[in-house]
Amino acid sequence: MANLILDNVSKHFGDQPAVDRLNLSIEPGEFVALLGPSGCGKTTMLRMLAGFENITGGSIRLGGQLLAGEGVHLPPEQRRMGMVFQSYALWPHMSVAQNVGYPLKMQKLADSERKRRIGEALEAVQLTHLADRAPKDLSGGQRQRVALARCLVTEPDVVLLDEPLANLDRHLRASMEEAFREFHRRTGATMIYVTHDQAEAMSLASRIAVMNAGRLEQWSTPQELYTYPRSEWVAGFIGQGGVAPVHGVSAGMELGEEALLKGLSSDVGAATPVLIRPQDVRVSERGIAVDVAESIYRGERYELKLRLASGAELMAYHHQPLQAGQRAAVQISRGWSLESTR
């Protein structure tokens, strides 16, 4: 197992930067997500890692070996990486075992070695009992597991996954998330997972690279991203909540109830955007005045959209509905001050 270093990696299509000076250091065995909206550069970055795209600038190293850099571009088959595509890309005329073993056939491995590795790969994704089935007889989740086994059979140092759950329904997505977690536990492989779904990234990855317009916005654990987002953009992309202007505070501060009450009611000094998560807002008899904009039933609770005097909107959870247009009061126990949006 080897660490993967991305040093100022860039990719331009004409004058347009798709990836702009991206720096990441990924430890062996990590499960990393590249997370961002469509067009942010995450799939382009994955294709550069795989060797399907040339880089424009910077370098990519795996365990000290230069994969891509000035004058160097190792082809995909020499990078010790495997890729799982969104479309599965299975051969319809081959059985599950034949699909999984196809890369080894291209490598001209001996039959005994090929059978051993096919068996181990199918066992890792829990599909040994379906080895003789055709892809058309499998569910979407099973087909994705076959694609994962085909990647694993080559014994790559790094597994690359390009939005592998995008074509599955909600029920299968939840099932496959658990399959990916189990696969990672069993193999210990380094995994790089591209997704635009922040819930997927938060539940699977040990660290997340949040990307926007080709640039890295923040690189951190899911817990840190949720609790301490760097900017307004990241705060809006990760989790739910509202951002309100608070006076008398600086970026990067954790604020308690007293500081929030003072800063929200003051107009002295510059205002700093502060993230307030819904679980930190409690409807009470006294506190900060708000107007109820919306009340939505979510089964176990009501989700409230509340408007402050400044016009900023907050979210809160409550055990009973409030009427739109109603005046209420809230107590806010925590906030996190952010950098202003660029």
Results as ranks from 00 to 15, higher is better:
Thr195Gly: 02
Thr195Asp: 03
His196Tyr: 05
Asp197Ile: 06
Asp197Pro: 00
Gln198Asn: 02
Ala199Gly: 02
Ala201Cys: 00
Ala201Gln: 09
Met202Val: 04
Met202Trp: 12
Ser203Gln: 14
Leu204Cys: 11
Ala205Leu: 04
Ala205Thr: 04
Ser206Pro: 05
Ser206Thr: 13
Arg207Ile: 02
Arg207Asp: 00
Ile208Glu: 12
Ala209Pro: 02
Val210Asp: 14
Val210Lys: 12
Val210Thr: 06
Val210Cys: 09
Met211Leu: 15
Met211Arg: 07
Asn212His: 15
Asn212Phe: 13
Ala213Arg: 15
Ala213Thr: 11
Ala213Asn: 12
Gly214Met: 06
Gly214Asp: 08
Gly214Gln: 06
Leu216Asp: 11
Leu216Val: 10
Glu217Met: 13
Glu217Asn: 13
Trp219Arg: 10
Trp219Ala: 00
Ser220Asp: 15
Ser220Ala: 15
Ser220Thr: 02
Ser220Asn: 14
Ser220Phe: 02
Thr221Phe: 12
Thr221Tyr: 05
Gln223Val: 09
Gln223Gly: 06
Gln223Pro: 03
Glu224Gln: 14
Glu224Asp: 15
Glu224Met: 10
Glu224Phe: 03
Glu224Thr: 11
Glu224Val: 10
Tyr226Ser: 04
Pro229Phe: 13
Arg230Cys: 10
Arg230Thr: 15
Ser231Ala: 07
Ser231Glu: 04
Glu232Gln: 14
Trp233Pro: 04
Val234Trp: 11
Val234Thr: 11
Val234Cys: 10
Val234Gln: 12
Ala235Val: 09
Ala235Asn: 08
Gly236Ala: 06
Gly236Phe: 07
Phe237Gly: 06
Ile238Ala: 11
Ile238Gln: 12
Gly239Thr: 07
Gly239Asn: 13
Gly241Glu: 09
Gly242Met: 07
Ala244His: 00
Ala244Phe: 03
Ala244Tyr: 00
Ala244Trp: 02
Pro245Met: 08
Pro245Cys: 09
Pro245Glu: 08
Val246Lys: 00
His247Asp: 04
His247Trp: 00
His247Leu: 03
Gly248Pro: 01
Val249Met: 06
Val249Ile: 14
Ser250Tyr: 07
Ser250Ile: 02
Ala251Phe: 03
Ala251Met: 04
Gly252Asp: 07
Gly252Tyr: 05
Gly252Lys: 06
Gly252Asn: 11
Gly252Leu: 05
Met253Pro: 03
Met253Thr: 12
Glu254Pro: 02
Glu254Cys: 15
Leu255Ala: 08
Leu255Asn: 05
Leu255Lys: 07
Glu257Val: 08
Glu257Pro: 13
Glu257Phe: 13
Glu257Tyr: 14
Glu258Trp: 08
Glu258Lys: 14
Glu258Asp: 15
Ala259Phe: 03
Ala259Trp: 05
Ala259Ile: 01
Leu260Phe: 10
Leu260Asn: 07
Leu261His: 14
Leu261Trp: 14
Leu261Cys: 14
Lys262Ser: 04
Lys262Thr: 09
Lys262Leu: 01
Leu264Asp: 03
Leu264Ser: 05
Ser265Asn: 11
Ser266Leu: 02
Ser266Met: 02
Val268Leu: 06
Gly269Leu: 03
Ala271Tyr: 03
Thr272Leu: 03
Thr272Gln: 06
Pro273Tyr: 08
Val274Pro: 01
Leu275Pro: 01
Leu275Glu: 01
Leu275Asn: 00
Leu275Val: 00
